[in-house]
Structure formats: structure tokens, C-alpha cells
Design a protein around this nucleic acid. Structure first.
Lengths: 190, 190
DNA sequence: ATATGTCATCTAGCATTGATAGATTGTCAA
DNA sequence: TTGACAATCTATCAATGCTAGATGACATAT
């Protein structure tokens, strides 16, 4: 009786097509262009079908954000993995962070700045994908600090700020490397 | 012939009532609640009157943001003014920054995270209010660094990141002071 | 093979939004 | 008083998120 399984599979496939389309449209035309009608058209189904997968538009956005955190985490881990030593890992991760944020601006935007229900600090409501991302950052901070949690939060905040201010055109892209070097040096120095 | 002047004055007054209402509603119910109809109702005029003051909804939001930058700048300057020495000024300004961001969350949101046309890094398009805010921050950084521009950008980014991550519930409010202390120490230490 | 009942999907529509066209009112100068 | 202009309103548009109810397909029991 593989019929039910096939249906499940096709359903999951269609669900992914929705989030993939949402992400693609957002990256190309901004999140305002991601409308239910547009998504329905994209997957070649009528609008109510979208609502059989997601409770509302926000839930779609949130699903894209969660997928973003997965990719983010693995990119950070990869950056740490290919490093020669702990200090180099810190540099590489910092660079990878900014690179990720500036490469997928719409994705990053929805992960961090658009209002979604995703939370970090409340252990109850935090999704595992978010916690994993934090741990990946903490891993490269740990060798240098005893106040790992606080230092990681601050490290993260600095990188996030650099990404956001540059994304919104408020600081100069030309001296990105210098700012990154400052942050890394700070973390090493105490 | 003070009639024209009176009209100008009344018009300017009405325009301010619009932005004040927008800000108030946003602070109480979020920016999604700031609709043209709601604003029209608030100032007791019909909707098209709003459009005789602002080209579109975004222009209203932007006007609120600009006013926010004015207040922000003066709060930062005040924090620096009442300080005992340069180091204390740095601490006070950092604290004032976070305090401002967390006290007027909707205002801060529109100043920094909602998509508006406001820019910093491009000297041509940067509004004077934004530049003034940057200078106010740079003023307290200057005593400690030769790379003032870069250090200020990084300082700003760190504070912005701390504010945003805390505002969106991604880092713990309980250790805010410790994170702030880290940022200040970093800036002092090199 | 066919009838049946369930589930999947669609058509049509709702209320709300930003924005605008055109009618209407008010005001001031001649 | 009247004519013209400016200020303001009513009415409406198209797009949006979302949902109710009709319609269709399809697996299963006989």
C-alpha cells in the first residue's frame, strides 16, 4: 500500500516548491512581491492549496527563515572546519557570516529583521535550528574566552550589526575587512 | 497679509499631527496598524488629505524615522555631555544607545530595520539628520582611536546588533550590561 | 466493474489596504 | 455679488490575505 506514501511524498514536494519559490521571488524582487497569488501561480495550483500547507503567509516566511538557519549553520561550520587554527577559525567564521548575509540578503533579512515568531533567548520557544546556529558560533569563540555565552552573544551582535548596516547602505562596503578585523581582534584581546 | 502665513502654519501643524499619530500608533500597535485610513481618522480629515502632505505611506514612515534620528542624536549628545571623562562618555553613550532603541522600539525599527530610502554611506543621498547622528557617535570614539571612521562604524554596528538581537528576543536581556561592558572595553583596548 | 463516500482542489467572494479621479464645497479677490 | 481657484470630500479602483462552499477525482468495498 504505497499509495499513501506517494501522496505524502508529493505533498512534501509541493510544500518545498512553495518555500523555494517564495525564497526565489524574495531574493529577486523583495518580500513584498511574495504574495499568495504569486506563489499559487508559481506552483500551478489555486490559492487555497497554499493554505493547506501553511496556516498563513507568515508561516511561509518563517519556513524559509528556518531553512536559512540550516544553511547558515552549515556554512559557519564549514568555515570553521577548513581553518588552520582557532584564530584563523574566528576570522573565517566572521568572514563567512558577513558573506552569507550579503549574498542572500532577502534570506538574511527574514532570518533576523522581518518580524517573525522565531525566538532565541527563550529556551522553550526556540527552534532547534536557531540553537544550532548559536552553537556553531559559540564553538569558535570558546577557545578564547571563559565568558563564552556572553562573548558569543556580543560577537554575534557585532556581526549582525555590520551585516545590517552594510546591507542597508549605512556603512561603507569598501572598509568591510577592516571592521571585521577589529571585531576579531577585540574578541582575541579580551 | 498674514493669511498665507496662517495657512502655511496650519498646514505644517496638520502635517505634524500626521507623523505624531503615525508614531504613536506604531509604538502602541506596530507599524502594520499605521494605515492611511487610520491616520485620516486620527487627524479628522479624509484620506486624500494625507496624500496632499506625503507622496505615499513610505514617505510618512520616513518622516517619522528622520524625526527619530533628531531625537536620537540629541540623546547621544546629552549622554556625552553629562559624562565625567572620555571613558565615562563612551559608557554612557553606549548605554543611552541601547536604552533609546529598547524604549522606542517602533521608532528604532523604522530608523534602522524597516526598508526605507534612507541611506548613510552614499554622501550624496545621506540626509543631514543621519550624518549628525553618526558624528555624535564619532565624537565619543575619537579620544581613543586614530581610525575614527572605521572604529565608529564598528562601534555603531555592535550597538545596533545588540539592540536588534535583544529587541527580537534572540539574546538574553538579563546580561545586557555585561555585553555592553565588553563592547566598551574592546573599543578602549585597541 | 461499479457505486460510494471521502478527500483534494477549484471558483467565487469577502474585507482591508494603498492610492486616485472627479465632484463639491469653501474662500478670497475683483 | 460673482467668478475663479484652492481645499476637501465622496466614490471607486486594483491588489492583497484569507475563506466558504461547490466541484471534482479517486481509493475502497461490494
Amino acid at each position: 500500500m504505497g499509495i499513501a506514501e506517494r501522496k505524502d511524498r508529493q505533498r512534501a514536494e509541493r510544500e518545498q516548491r512553495i518555500t523555494v519559490a517564495a525564497r526565489l521571488i524574495a531574493e529577486r524582487e523583495g518580500w513584498n512581491a511574495v504574495t499568495i497569488r504569486r506563489l499559487a501561480e508559481e506552483i500551478e495550483y489555486s490559492q487555497p492549496v497554499i493554505y493547506s500547507h501553511f496556516q498563513n503567509r507568515d508561516a511561509i516566511v518563517e519556513a524559509v527563515a528556518v531553512e536559512g538557519f540550516r544553511e547558515f549553520t552549515s556554512e559557519v561550520q564549514e568555515a570553521a572546519r577548513v581553518s588552520t587554527d582557532p584564530r584563523n577559525a574566528l576570522e573565517n567564521v566572521a568572514a563567512a557570516y558577513l558573506s552569507f548575509a550579503l549574498k542572500h540578503t532577502a534570506l538574511y533579512q527574514v532570518m533576523f529583521t522581518l518580524p517573525t515568531g522565531l525566538r532565541f533567548a527563550d529556551p522553550e520557544k526556540t527552534r532547534p535550528e536557531l540553537r544550532a546556529a548559536f552553537r556553531a558560533l559559540a564553538a569558535v569563540v570558546t577557545p578564547f574566552r571563559t565568558d563564552v555565552e556572553i562573548a558569543t552573544e556580543t560577537f554575534w551582535a557585532s556581526l549582525h550589526g555590520l551585516a545590517e548596516l552594510e546591507r542597508t547602505g549605512r556603512i561603507r562596503p569598501s572598509v568591510r575587512a577592516e571592521r571585521l578585523a577589529l571585531v576579531v581582534r577585540w574578541l582575541l584581546g579580551g
